[in-house]
Design a binder for these strands. Structure first.
Lengths: 197, 197
DNA sequence: TCCTTTCCGTAACAAGCGTTACCGTAGCAT
DNA sequence: ATGCTACGGTAACGCTTGTTACGGAAAGGA
């Protein structure tokens, strides 16, 4: 059994290269040759690590989900109560730290691609349902007496507002600065703030 | 001076063909050959009507803007007061009538493309600023005493909510049905409803 | 009627894409 | 040390894309 490769290191290398290409040139710039050049190898290695282009695409989609989930977990874990967690999770979604502003752009690219690709659409729905469940759980903790209908409406309104802000800010940062996004979020969270009077 | 063509009819023909291709196959399916086949001609005519692909792309973007502007004008004109106009304009934006659900998908496609194309980005910003100005004018009429800051925050929050709902519904219609979108909009419009008690 | 000029279909081009076949080679087992 | 086998670089293929050159045809003016 000669010459075994380090599969983990390869996927890590290609994951980083994939993400860098996505961040720079967007989804239409994600070609096998671009990934290979960015990773310092050739298309041969890429095609051996991923059987097809779609596999690479789905892997990149999973990469996006992992990044957002990790950051959301961290934001929630660093909070002391449910409202703080809600504010932190939604806040880090609109005002992305550490210059991770590119995630919004990548997210928009995958969203557009999902409209014409069933596999990508399914991943998008799974990721969004995961995010919705997280927000719904936190909202329910803030307002235990609310009905399911009100929970659902509030949750999806909050998520829609956050994603809308993200999308619009990605295409027009000057019109949607971080401060305005956070103010808009704070206003939407008014009804959930503890000690409401 | 022999054989003059009907320029207006040609652009109308190609506009319809362009929109049909966009609605069916999305922006990546918008090729010169697809447009030509849909219009019942060849790429020769398309290339004589539009000097380059980018010209066709920008024309398609203008087409999207015209459609949304016309519908927004109609919704506003059919209303009796400012709040009714606000409700109607935002409502027709989330619950697109006459099966014009495809506009959201096309919009997402152009938005993603705008992230890597300056010309498309400029058109997106112009269209969004136009929409923002319309909503802000209506909000200002509903609440004449509000400060500019509050006007801007409310306007951009409403627009972000509507676009967020649109985007999420385009990718996951089951999770964001028309009824929920309208409920979310109604909740967001609560503070602007006349006779607040 | 015929000529001229504009229009547009035809077909080819180069470039870029995903994909595949091929083969040199690097490294573990003997 | 040597041979075997999987790895991966090279290069080509087929396809689609935008773009362009060319020629036939259609229509208004003489």
């Amino acid at each position: 059994m000669p010459r075994q490769r380090d599969v983990v290191a390869q996927r890590e290398l290609l994951s980083n290269a994939t993400w860098q290409v996505l961040a720079e040139d967007g989804l239409p710039g994600l070609t096998l040759r671009a990934v290979a050049e960015r990773a310092g190898c050739t298309t041969g290695l890429v095609m051996h690590a991923f059987p097809t282009k779609k596999a690479l695409l789905l892997h990149a989609r999973d990469l996006l989900y992992e990044r957002t989930a990790v950051r959301a977990d961290a934001a929630e874990a660093a909070s002391v109560d449910a409202f703080g967690a809600l504010d932190a999770v939604l806040g880090q979604a609109v005002d992305l730290p550490h210059g991770h502003h590119e995630e919004s752009r990548v997210w928009v690219g995958f969203l557009a691609a999902a409209l014409a690709d069933d596999a990508l659409a399914e991943r998008h729905r799974a990721a969004n349902h995961s995010f919705l469940a997280r927000i719904r759980r936190l909202v329910a903790t803030c307002r235990p007496k609310w009905t399911d209908e009100r929970l659902e409406l509030t949750t999806k309104s909050l998520v829609a507002l956050v994603e809308g802000l993200n999308v619009l800010a990605a295409a027009d940062p000057a019109a949607y600065p971080a401060r305005l996004q956070l103010d808009a979020l704070a206003k939407a969270l008014t009804e959930l703030r503890p000690e409401p009077a």
